[in-house]
Simulated assay, not measured.
Amino acid sequence: MLIVQNIRLSRILRNTWQIDIIMIISCTGAYLAREFLIKHHFELPSIIPTVLGTAIAFFIGFNNNQSYDRWWEARKIWGALVNDSRSWARCMVTYISANEMSEQEFNALKSNLVRRHIAFLYALKANLRSAVDENYHKYLSEEDLLEISSHTNVPNAILTLQSRDLQQLSTDGRIDGFRFMEMNQLLVKFSDEMGMSERIKNTIFPTTYNYFTKVFIWLFVVSLTLVISQYAGLWSIFLGWLVGFVYVSTQINGMSLVDPFENNSSAIPLNQITRTIEINLLEMIGAQDIPKPVKPINREYIL
């Protein structure tokens, strides 16, 4: 996620240079075509780029709105995960009764349930980014790792372990019925938030929207160059590219938000969010091995 108010020109050019070259070539081709092929036969009506420009503005506006909705929904889901994770750790620390357990065993029980939740978050992040993230291994016991090894959906398997242990706490009388229902509801929320995140990840943004927008921008740039070349001459190549650059940059900006879980500067900062939860939860159980917060990259964005 970008954390700066002003974006460097180098970043913009790095994202658009390939399309810029194609637009310049297209504008040059349109200018030469008018000068040597169609100049003495007919002139392209100015109404054509006018109508195309208006249509493209609607297309880009719609695409960008839908892209931002996906990004913002993903951010709300992970914001809820932050709050629910803290509530889960708070329940582990305050709701469970020791009964006849020793203090060491009691602390180990609470620590295991909290650390297993941190593993759930890292496993979910790895699934959403289609990455191999081994961070969750260090928060699981050998028995847990062996049990989830046969599952394709690791975070879902971890939630099953949590639910099983929660039921055992109720059976052993370490939590009453009301607290069991409250803690189980948190597991249901985790499952819902996992499912909503997977829905965004697995729902592909309609390809036709992006494809037709690109085609229409190309037609617009070519037709605009053909029209203004009769007034601006060779400068029409630069002016055609300049106007096209505005449309292309706006469209690319919106499309960069389509996949909010990707590991790039435009996506939501899963690394920062999971690390923040990790720090908070470890502090709540009095752990010593607390990692440092995630730092911004080049003071420009955070992953």
Rank of each mutant, 00 (worst) to 15 (best):
L2A: 13
L2K: 15
Q5L: 00
I7A: 08
R8S: 12
R8V: 02
R14W: 05
N15G: 14
L32S: 14
L37W: 07
K39C: 00
H41K: 08
E43F: 01
I48L: 08
T50C: 00
G53S: 09
F58Q: 13
F59R: 15
W72V: 15
W72M: 11
A80N: 11
N83Y: 00
S87Y: 01
A89S: 15
T94Q: 04
A98C: 04
A98H: 04
S102E: 10
E103D: 11
N107R: 11
R116C: 07
H117G: 07
K125T: 09
N127E: 11
L128M: 13
E134K: 08
D144A: 12
S150C: 13
S150P: 03
H151G: 12
N153V: 09
N153Y: 08
I158K: 03
G173M: 11
R174V: 14
F180G: 07
N184V: 04
S191G: 13
S197R: 05
N210T: 15
K214R: 13
L219N: 02
S223W: 04
A232Y: 05
W235V: 06
L239A: 00
G240L: 00
W241E: 00
L242P: 01
V248T: 14
M255D: 15
V258Q: 12
P260L: 01
F261G: 13
F261E: 12
N263W: 01
I277R: 02
D289I: 03
P293Q: 00
K295C: 00
R299I: 02
